[in-house]
């Protein structure tokens, strides 16, 4: 078997707020192979988002070891983490998080700009836009789009730089059943057809079932897998 794209060993993250230390992660170990689709579930405050923030280079780990696609995240500086965000990961959030003043295409172009991904969009990305069903919505600003459309634009934006991993933090948390199914279907399709590695946080067991496997977290630890 090839080298896993994510390798985490005994990862800890301690937030220091004033005099109190909050241990958000208390020793997480996890391996994810390229092309895997992992669902992460667990009660509120169990450290799921914190794990994503570290994987995505938004926060620095406290101790342990963590590698993504060969990069040692423990060794990364602030600018190293900026580069990680530019090239290795794509984020999808519960609240879509599109830039409100830009059109759908503007949002996508912005992500391309930061990773210096210039030139015309390639055909495979154009096909992706069609599969996402947003090819006709690209000139619209976020407020002119439905939640489901916005989330699909966010997915396109997260994938435009061909990241090694896609991190989706409760991507369907704000969507109705119909739109949730559409978005989850898109994620499964991306995983199956393009081999996109995906990690997805969810509170919904039905959504979790879209993944190949489900990781259960509690109190900053992984308690079991199913």
């Amino acid at each position: 078997m090839s080298e896993p794209i994510i390798r985490i060993q005994d990862l800890k993250k301690i937030y220091r707020t004033g005099d109190v230390d909050v241990a958000a992660l208390r020793g997480v170990s996890l391996e994810v192979a390229k092309g895997d689709f992992v669902s992460i579930v667990g009660p509120s405050g169990s450290g799921k988002s914190t794990l994503f923030h570290i994987l995505g280079g938004l926060a620095a780990p406290t101790s342990g070891s963590i590698h993504i696609d060969g990069d040692d995240l423990m060794a990364l500086s602030d600018s190293g983490r900026t580069n990680l965000r530019r090239r290795k990961v794509g984020f999808v959030f519960q609240k879509y998080n599109l830039l409100p003043t830009l059109t759908a295409m503007g949002n996508i172009e912005m992500a391309r700009y930061f990773s210096e991904n210039a030139g015309p969009l390639d055909q495979s990305f154009r096909d992706l836009l069609t599969r996402l069903g947003i090819q006709d919505r690209l000139d619209h600003k976020p407020r002119a789009m439905s939640g489901g459309e916005q989330q699909r634009v966010a997915i396109a934006r997260a994938l435009v730089n061909q990241p090694a991993i896609l991190l989706a933090d409760e991507p369907t948390g704000n969507l109705d059943t119909e739109n949730s199914e559409k978005v989850l279907g898109v994620l499964r399709d991306l995983n199956e057809r393009l081999g996109q590695t995906i990690l997805m946080i969810t509170h919904n067991p039905e959504a979790a079932a879209y993944g190949h496997r489900t990781v259960h977290m509690r109190d900053g630890r992984i308690v079991r897998e199913s």
């Binding site: 938004l58 900026t82 580069n83 965000r85 530019r86 984020f91 998080n97 830039l99 930061f114 934006r157």
Partner: peptide, 9 residues
């Protein structure tokens, strides 16, 4: 925050 998540330094 969004810009930073997209890789803005």
């Amino acid at each position: 925050g969004i810009l930073k998540a997209l890789g803005a330094s």
